[in-house]
Every structure is written in structure tokens, then in C-alpha cells.
């Protein structure tokens, strides 16, 4: 066994991860190699002088604090339902609605500025082709007259 392998073996040995045969092999090398023995002794000393694991008692209100944090997180996840954000939510919605009306007005196709739609144009073309003043001018009993009545005409 060489010194490089022994260094790794020392680490495993000190963590109780070495098999019995490997342990014997490592200890044999350490006995015959002063450099590795020194390394082994120093590493052992470091680990033996580590502070022991510390133990702290959990605060009696740990779970209550945890519950509060979860509730707080849920509110942040759904800010619309959080009273703290209610005003901001209403204001945001109002801005969205107002800006959609404004955009529509700018585009010139709002309810009150609507120009003739393609449907209106087709009806006027149909009236001109049939030489009718109004759709109610269809002859009595004709399909056009019945259709007009069904639509609520005269």
C-alpha cells in the first residue's frame, strides 16, 4: 500500500467505513511509515477535539409561528383575496377596464362611433337589387314577406 492510498484509507477508517482486511493493511503501513503515522495521529487529534454535537430545545411556539408563515404565504400567493391588497386590486381592475375603453375609442370602432357594418351594407345592396323601399315591401305571402314577419316586421 502506498502513502497516497493510505491517506484515503485513514479518512475512511476515521469515519468507520473501512472493512476489516483494509483496516489491517492500513495499520500495517502506518506502523512502517512515519509520515503516514504523523498524518494519522494529527487527523485523529482534530476529530477527537471537535466540539460535540450541540442540542437546542425547540421553541414552544415553533408550530404556531410555522402556521402563521404558511397562512401569510398563502395570502401572498392569492393577493386579490388579501385585504391588504384589496384597494390595489380594485384600482388595477379599474385601470384595465378604463384602458380597454380608451383603446377602443382610439381605434374608432366603439359602440357610439360604429360605421356601417358589412351586414348593414349587404342589406342595402339586397334592397337595391330587389327594388324595395323597405324589407316590408315584399309581396304578401312571399317567402321574403314571411321571413320579414318572423323577424318582427310588419
Amino acid at each position: 500500500m502506498n502513502c497516497g492510498k493510505t491517506k484515503k484509507m485513514i479518512s475512511l477508517y476515521l469515519d468507520n467505513e473501512l472493512k476489516e482486511a483494509e483496516k489491517k493493511e492500513m495499520l500495517l503501513h502506518i506502523d512502517s511509515c512515519p509520515k503516514c503515522r504523523k498524518d494519522f495521529e494529527f487527523t485523529t487529534e482534530i476529530l477527537q477535539n471537535l466540539d460535540p454535537a450541540e442540542h437546542i430545545d425547540v421553541s414552544p411556539y415553533f408550530f404556531q409561528k410555522l402556521q402563521s408563515r404558511i397562512k401569510e404565504n398563502n395570502k401572498e400567493f392569492f393577493p386579490l383575496f388579501n385585504p391588504r391588497f384589496a384597494f390595489a386590486s380594485v384600482a388595477t381592475l379599474s385601470i384595465i377596464i378604463a384602458s380597454s375603453f380608451f383603446t377602443g375609442a382610439l381605434m374608432g370602432d366603439t359602440y357610439w362611433t360604429q360605421t356601417k357594418s358589412s351586414e348593414t351594407v349587404s342589406i342595402e345592396e339586397a334592397k337595391a337589387a330587389l327594388k324595395l323601399g323597405t324589407l316590408e315591401d315584399f309581396p304578401e305571402g312571399s317567402v321574403g314577406n314571411l321571413y320579414s314577419k318572423a323577424l318582427g316586421g310588419a
Binding site: K8, S11, L14, F42, T43, I46
Partner: peptide, 13 residues
């Protein structure tokens, strides 16, 4: 893990 703990000990030394 073996490598992490080996390097940790090397660094301490």
C-alpha cells in the same frame, strides 16, 4: 461522499 469527506479532512489539516 467519500471524496467530499476526504477533501474536508485535508482542508482542516
Amino acid at each position: 461522499v467519500e471524496s467530499l469527506l476526504f477533501r474536508a479532512k485535508q482542508k482542516l489539516k
